Computed example of a mutant assay.
Amino acid sequence: MPQTLSYRVETHRLAAPFRISGYVFEASDVVVVELDDGRNRGRGEAAGVYYLGDEAPQIVEALEQNRAAIEACGSREEVRQILPPGGARNAVDCSMWELEALRSGIPAHRLAGIDAPRPLVTTFTLGADEPSKMAEGARNYASAKAIKIKLTGSFELDIERVRAIREARPDVWLGVDANQGFDRSVLPALVQAMARQNVSLIEQPLARGSEADLEGFESPIPIAADESVLDLADVPGLVGRFQVVNIKLDKCGGLTEALLMAKEARRLGLGVMVGNMVGTSLAMAPAFILGQLCDYVDLDGPTFLKEDRVPSVQYSDGEIWCPDDVWGSQSAVLAA
């Protein structure tokens, strides 16, 4: 059934600047796509992938270039053929999921094979700052059960950051995200230092393109690929190098591809993680479905915004819950 494509670009300000290795975020520009078949309207949100030059202008350009094909496409699989992995495909794919849910009367989570979603423990992320300020931030996450720490590649300072946070919160699960900030020569020392602080996951320590440097590297802490894995085609190359794959809908191009990646990762013996680019609850909702299949969940994006959408996902007792009225069901249409 053909549908009409529309979209808008929204700027969502962050409550405070957010720093990672090599980048500082102050706002998140997202593209909201709507597909309307005259009776039902599906929605999807994408922020794109900044380090690939895939941001709002590029997403809009891709949508316009492929408008006719998108409006004529009849399935999510066709979307995978029309658009490459990235933000444009993510927004269109998620719109197709919601459209299919409304047409069929079956919620998106059931279409994905999830009969009864459950609340998920999610990490809450601390941007890189002075160790004392990060420790204070960890204490402010009073209900958090899991905290992810952004590193910058400054080895001694990063060690101090993690030590300060562990002292402030000896009770929580800790993971660190290096965002490609280190090189192979310091990796053994980094792993040893993280092990001393009872860190449970190290995310993307080396630059994308340096995956071979991890070949055969033995770490007592699982190492997760983020920038090193974009879509389904990248997953087999992680074996023997990483232990976990971080799947983000903006990277891979939507929930359809993400579910295929999770299945393939499991087949290959890899752990599975769902992550996010900073976005609103409309972006978290389809990722929440993927999170039902994951070992690690990092879906705290809306907590960084000055203001989220209403209705929104809910954060309580260190967990995320996505009510039916956010996305992917008739209840969401009535609430929109």
Results as ranks from 00 to 15, higher is better:
residue 1 M to D: 06
residue 159 I to N: 02
residue 282 L to F: 06
residue 67 R to T: 05
residue 165 I to P: 00
residue 234 D to V: 08
residue 301 G to N: 10
residue 278 V to S: 06
residue 51 Y to P: 13
residue 279 G to A: 15
residue 191 V to L: 09
residue 237 G to C: 08
residue 106 I to G: 00
residue 257 E to G: 06
residue 291 G to H: 08
residue 44 G to M: 09
residue 214 L to T: 05
residue 284 M to W: 00
residue 6 S to I: 09
residue 252 C to R: 06
residue 176 V to G: 02
residue 198 N to Q: 15
residue 242 F to P: 05
residue 223 I to L: 11
residue 299 L to C: 02
residue 185 S to K: 14
residue 20 I to A: 01
residue 79 V to S: 00
residue 156 E to Q: 15
residue 94 C to N: 15
residue 150 K to Q: 06
residue 16 A to V: 11
residue 141 Y to Q: 07
residue 17 P to E: 06
residue 236 P to K: 07
residue 162 V to W: 01
residue 131 P to W: 08
residue 150 K to C: 04
residue 310 V to G: 11
residue 73 C to D: 03
residue 127 G to M: 02
residue 262 A to S: 11
residue 28 S to I: 09
residue 198 N to A: 15
residue 94 C to Q: 12
residue 208 R to D: 13
residue 210 S to G: 10
residue 311 P to Y: 08
residue 321 W to G: 02
residue 184 R to F: 13
residue 294 C to Y: 07
residue 109 H to S: 07
residue 333 V to I: 14
residue 104 S to I: 10
residue 50 Y to G: 07
residue 165 I to W: 02
residue 118 R to H: 13
residue 112 A to D: 12
residue 133 K to A: 15
residue 255 L to T: 07
residue 90 N to H: 09
residue 321 W to Q: 06
residue 3 Q to W: 13
residue 290 L to H: 04
residue 44 G to R: 11
residue 13 R to N: 14
residue 171 D to W: 05
residue 279 G to R: 12
residue 29 D to L: 12
residue 278 V to M: 08
residue 36 D to K: 12
residue 72 A to N: 05
residue 241 R to Y: 00
residue 117 P to Q: 03
residue 108 A to W: 00
residue 184 R to D: 09
residue 166 R to I: 14
residue 197 Q to V: 13
residue 215 E to N: 14
residue 3 Q to C: 15
residue 75 S to G: 05
residue 25 F to P: 10
residue 75 S to E: 07
residue 273 M to A: 03
residue 114 I to A: 08
residue 237 G to I: 11
residue 97 W to Q: 02
residue 40 N to P: 08
residue 263 K to A: 15
residue 279 G to N: 13
residue 50 Y to L: 15
residue 55 E to G: 14
residue 161 R to M: 03
residue 336 A to S: 14
residue 41 R to G: 12
residue 272 V to C: 09
residue 122 T to S: 08
residue 80 R to A: 14
residue 142 A to N: 03
residue 161 R to L: 01
residue 158 D to L: 06
residue 322 C to E: 04
residue 108 A to D: 04
residue 97 W to T: 10
residue 195 A to P: 10
residue 33 V to E: 02
residue 200 S to F: 04
residue 234 D to G: 11
residue 291 G to V: 11
residue 300 D to I: 10
residue 100 E to I: 12
residue 141 Y to C: 05
residue 99 L to M: 03
residue 237 G to M: 07
residue 60 V to H: 03
residue 256 T to L: 13
residue 235 V to H: 02
residue 176 V to M: 03
residue 253 G to T: 07
residue 199 V to A: 06
residue 59 I to A: 04
residue 179 N to I: 11
residue 302 P to A: 13
residue 122 T to K: 04
residue 91 A to D: 01
residue 30 V to C: 05
residue 2 P to F: 10
residue 46 A to I: 11
residue 194 M to Y: 01
residue 286 P to A: 01
residue 158 D to V: 09
residue 250 D to V: 09
residue 265 A to H: 00
residue 322 C to N: 06
residue 103 R to L: 10
residue 256 T to F: 07
residue 231 D to V: 13
residue 271 G to P: 04
residue 17 P to T: 09
residue 148 K to C: 08
residue 4 T to E: 14
residue 173 W to F: 15
residue 90 N to T: 13
residue 323 P to D: 11
residue 80 R to C: 12
residue 194 M to L: 15
residue 267 R to C: 08
residue 113 G to E: 11
residue 73 C to T: 12
residue 14 L to I: 11
residue 245 V to R: 01
residue 158 D to R: 06
residue 236 P to T: 11
residue 223 I to H: 01
residue 129 D to P: 01
residue 11 T to H: 12
residue 60 V to A: 08
residue 214 L to C: 05
